[in-house]
Computed example of a mutant assay.
Amino acid sequence: MTDPTFTLRPAGGSDEALLLRIFAEAHCAGFEQLGLEPGALASLIRMQFHARQAQYRMYPGGAEYLIWRDEVVLGNCWLSDTPEQLRVLDIAVLAEHRRQGVARAVLGEVCARAAAAGKPVRLSVWHQNTAALELYRAFGFVPEPTVLASEPGDLGNGYLELRYCPEAAVRQAGAR
């Protein structure tokens, strides 16, 4: 495992090609199985990318960041930072940097930032994304009890709403 230290830099318009590459690698795996011509496939991915950006920009305090280490881009993340919560909208790591602790380091920074501000971190995760669920649980994320389709945190659409409360995580760590 490499050193997971990193910096976050706000993404800008000149980063669009890089952000599109990160998005395509992280969120469009398997699209080639649709059997589309290369130009149509590229258009579909661009359309999905722009739709996701428009959706995330609607969040109050929403901002996109590039994750850097040693002058190399590792991935990106979207955060929505409001007085009530710090919401993780997305963390995406380029394939060549996965399994090196990057997402863990970013999530650790986000949780530390929220703890310093005395507010929770919230996020939604696909219920079958076991790797992400293991990571979030290791940090002390729990199902959001106020969301209840069939079980705590179940949004009823295949996603779970999770919450990290700094004070609860401290109590949980002390109990171990």
Rank of each mutant, 00 (worst) to 15 (best):
D90Q: 11
V121L: 08
L148R: 12
G35E: 13
I67M: 02
C28A: 12
R99D: 09
G153F: 00
F31C: 02
L123H: 05
R87E: 09
E161H: 14
A51K: 15
Y159T: 07
W68C: 04
L94G: 00
L79Y: 02
A131W: 08
A103L: 07
G158T: 06
L20R: 13
A63R: 14
E109I: 06
M47Y: 13
G158N: 03
V147D: 00
P83N: 12
C77Y: 01
A95F: 07
P143Y: 09
D90S: 09
A54M: 11
A26D: 03
L20D: 01
A115E: 12
V110Q: 08
V102N: 01
W78P: 02
V110E: 04
P83A: 11
G156P: 04
L133P: 00
V106A: 03
L107W: 05
R69A: 10
A95K: 14
F141T: 00
N76W: 00
W78K: 05
L79G: 01
D154P: 04
A138W: 10
R163A: 02
G62V: 09
L94T: 09
I91Y: 05
R104W: 07
R69Y: 06
P152T: 07
H50T: 08
L148G: 00
A29T: 15
V147Y: 07
Y65A: 01
C28H: 14
R113Y: 07
A92Y: 07
R98Q: 13
D70S: 14
L86P: 00
L135G: 00
R46V: 04
R122C: 03
L162P: 01
E96D: 11
R21A: 08
A112D: 14
A54L: 11
V73R: 06
G108Y: 09
I45K: 14
K119S: 08
S124Y: 14
L148H: 15
G153E: 01
L36H: 10
R163Q: 06
Y136M: 05
G62S: 11
R46T: 03
Q53L: 13
L107A: 06
Y65K: 08
A149P: 03
G140K: 09
Y59E: 06
R46L: 11
E109S: 11
L107H: 04
W78I: 01
F139P: 00
R113E: 03
R57G: 05
P152R: 05
G101S: 06
S150N: 09
V102A: 02
A114D: 04
Q55Y: 15
S150R: 15
A112L: 15
D81E: 15
V142I: 14
R21T: 07
L36K: 12
G35D: 09
A92Q: 08
A51V: 04
E96K: 14
G75R: 10
C28R: 15
A29D: 14
Y159H: 12
C28V: 08
G118H: 11
F139I: 02
S80E: 04
A63Y: 02
G101F: 13
G108W: 07
G39R: 15
E37M: 12
A42T: 12
A131S: 11
R163M: 04
A103E: 03
G30Y: 10
G118D: 07
V102S: 00
I22G: 00
Y56D: 02
A92N: 02
Q128Y: 12
H27M: 14
G153A: 03
A40V: 14
F49I: 09
E144A: 13
V106E: 00
